[in-house]
Design a protein around this nucleic acid. Sequence first.
DNA 1: GTCTGTTTCAAACATACGTTTGATAGTTGA
DNA 2: TCAACTATCAAACGTATGTTTGAAACAGAC
Lengths: 225, 225
Amino acid sequence: MAQSDTVDRILDAAEELFAERGFSETSLRMITSKAKVNLAAVNYHFGSKNALIHAVFARFLTPFSSTLETAFNNLEERCDGQPPTLNQTLWALTESAVRMPQRNEKGISIFMRLLGLAYTQSQGHLRKFLEQEYSQPFSRFMRLLKESTPQLSAVDRYWRIQFMLGATAFTMSSSDALRDILQNKLGVETTVQEIAARLVPFLAAGMQAEDPLLMMPTFGKTSVA
Amino acid sequence: MAQSDTVDRILDAAEELFAERGFSETSLRMITSKAKVNLAAVNYHFGSKNALIHAVFARFLTPFSSTLETAFNNLEERCDGQPPTLNQTLWALTESAVRMPQRNEKGISIFMRLLGLAYTQSQGHLRKFLEQEYSQPFSRFMRLLKESTPQLSAVDRYWRIQFMLGATAFTMSSSDALRDILQNKLGVETTVQEIAARLVPFLAAGMQAEDPLLMMPTFGKTSVA
DNA sequence: GTCTGTTTCAAACATACGTTTGATAGTTGA
DNA sequence: TCAACTATCAAACGTATGTTTGAAACAGAC
């Protein structure tokens, strides 16, 4: 056949293995044997392992960033010139992620875990790739966040955004494990949608906390300006 | 000399390289050449690379967990039978981390980044090692958190603790990079102490947010019980 | 000084990795 | 039917990894 499914089989296998083991810890031989294709197929179709990593991200990040764009458009339209509230901004992002068409039932957790890995694993080439390919929706989200939290100083906002990213990336990146633990400990089933529903108010409350430096106890030497 | 400093030189180099590159991405040859010792020294003194990773963690986790123990003792003494507040519990942990005696100026960020990596990189042996060596202070912190947030259901508390861990581990694991960015963008200097001072109120506010499931918009199909 | 145990060192080992090769099969368009 | 192109495959390549070896250097005790 003209357009073989080898490419997709490789992407599926790579996506899953990367998500559960990380990039350096996943070899091309694991990927190709899981995908039931020849070892050389990766280099033939993608060129290199790094290019395969990029392709895995591009496959879900490209549709996601356009979904996100329309979500942000809708939000700004609904707000009619007014800045959106923090909750609205966060929900726009969350719903876009949760609503993404998924290839299988594990789709959303893999998606999240890969995003978390992208931040965490210090793969220079990946960060560069993501920055130059997807900087636009990212900046737009940042701008919306800024409008949603006019009471924060730039420095406060900066750090709190990092805290939000951390809570999100970490939780989602290990959501499978965390769900299993909860299932065993308390016998509770949890969906990714539910995790998101718990995460957003947590983040919103954190973003809107009182002035951070007021409630700090004095350290040995207080180095706060 | 009877007790050579080779062991410490290896630990110093390994700690720094692990922190900035991750475990799989750091080879024994990088470590030994940075430490200026022979390649075989690692296997001679530690037995294996994994054992070296464990030793790196043990070197700062063991004193830290005893610092933590006294901090928790003090806290419970001060509270005199009453459960501590959430802010007190979080500060007890934070101050212990910040006050740890450090080998050098980079000590605290390396410490934090390694903790973040321990969570993030799915090194099975590491997780097992940490669980069986340091489960006690961890459980104690969890118990204090539980007493500090009696208003939360077990499930809510579970997820919010994960969110806290994520925000902390992620921020700390990339604190150097984040500080640099802030320095370049806004010309602001930041200490680790200051990051902690911003993080704690963020976490406390998130933990004490309103009932999460109330403010969720309806998804396509609402899967929340 | 010699013996004993410990530590260092250069070299090699076996294995795993990403990548390349060259032959073979399959498909397409004239 | 034949040529041109594309895709697959087994095999090999070069390199890097963690680990082991056996000899050399060093230490302290007698």
